[in-house]
Nucleic acid binder design. Structure first.
Lengths: 208, 208
DNA sequence: TATAGGAACTTAACACTGTTAACCAATAAT
DNA sequence: ATTATTGGTTAACAGTGTTAAGTTCCTATA
């Protein structure tokens, strides 16, 4: 049996991912995962150094998922502004659609877990890089006016992240419609790329 | 003894606030608070329904603190754009300067604690309202071009929140300087208010 | 074929956590 | 004088992450 060794490891990952999505991060305990996997809690420690390491593995999967989503949605043939628009919406869509994943990926405070290994940050950074390359492309084509793509890419990420996290936390004024909020956020991001972006009558941002 | 009753209550609040700031949210346990207060852990339950209620009280204090900071920094006599600039920077300053407070105020996921009581949200909303009034003022004076101040106020809050939370979590690309990042975020927010904002040579946003 | 080694897994335990039930002492009210 | 209330306690429950020690079982070598 070649890598049948890692059968349980996969089961643990799959069930904990499922439990994370279904029952939330707070209800994710080693013992609960274990009973769901039909093994003892300590068996998990055979494949993961501790709970944080298991969490890190899930986070990594999350970043892969997000990156795939962004990459497949992004069409490098389209105009940069359209691409930026798409990327923003896909990111928000991911965050609102996978709140549990999003939480451990972006909202889990470092103080709550072991330092996320530096080498794993590369996967997280791939998403920012994707934005950055897009900005550089837009700059080269003269569509954007950006001096420091890396800084702006991080600002864009921060803006969208703020929107997603506050929405998911239910901390956006209830009198503000979710759609209007999202549209305004996206418009604001796109506005930062070049010129002024206003809202068209079909709720799509239009560059004036 | 008039309200000597609430002596212990005050001590609990003060020490837990101090412990929160000094040792972080994760290390805040009822028993630790109790030993620090020279009382038993169960005594805390005489004054707070549970740990969440204690946390809510701390959150409330945090919002008061933030509101005071914003209110005293805001000078309604100055031009709206200057005021917006000040508010943004004060907010960021608060978030970076009080990461523990900020965490329980804005990053503590609802799933991790009992629903934050609706009536207490008013204190949180006072900060958004302050931004909103400023936007309305700017609109009235013709400095801003804003159709829905409440939506935009929430977007501004989200943008700044995203920046603060990612900075505090150490999730901003290390190759991006903190100052440059903050300046770009503020510039981006101000740009959304009207026209295009570019960075002057003194790193201060200038409206063109 | 017998035995040593190691891999996969379990049980029992430790030191924590939030929270509750039961109890006790002192003060205030009838 | 007796009752009720206030403010506090101790002991316990059920849960947490984690570790040390022990157990099975399969595989490879003497």
């Amino acid at each position: 049996m070649p890598d049948n060794n890692h059968d349980l490891r996969r089961t643990i990952l799959d069930t904990s991912r499922r439990m994370l999505v279904n029952e939330g991060f707070t209800n994710l305990s080693m013992r609960k995962i274990a009973t769901e996997c039909d093994c003892s809690a300590t068996s998990i420690y055979l494949y993961f150094k501790n709970k944080d390491a298991l969490l890190h593995a899930l986070i990594e999967e999350g970043f892969d998922l997000l990156f795939e989503k962004l990459k497949t949605a992004d069409d490098s043939q389209r105009p940069p502004l359209d691409r930026a628009n798409t990327i923003c919406r896909e990111f928000i869509d991911f965050g609102l659609g996978n709140p549990e994943y999003y939480e451990i990926m972006f909202q889990l405070h470092p103080r709550h877990m072991e330092r996320y290994p530096v080498e794993k940050f590369r996967k997280a950074r791939k998403n920012i890089d994707l934005i950055m390359y897009l900005l550089e492309d837009g700059s080269k084509k003269g569509d954007f006016l950006i001096e420091e793509p890396r800084v702006v890419a991080n600002v864009i990420l921060a803006t969208i992240h703020g929107a997603v996290s506050l929405l998911n936390a239910g901390r956006i004024d209830s009198r503000v419609g979710k759609e209007a909020f999202v549209e305004t956020v996206v418009a604001s991001v796109l506005a930062g790329l070049k010129g002024t972006v206003i809202m068209g009558k079909d709720q799509q941002p239009v560059v004036s």
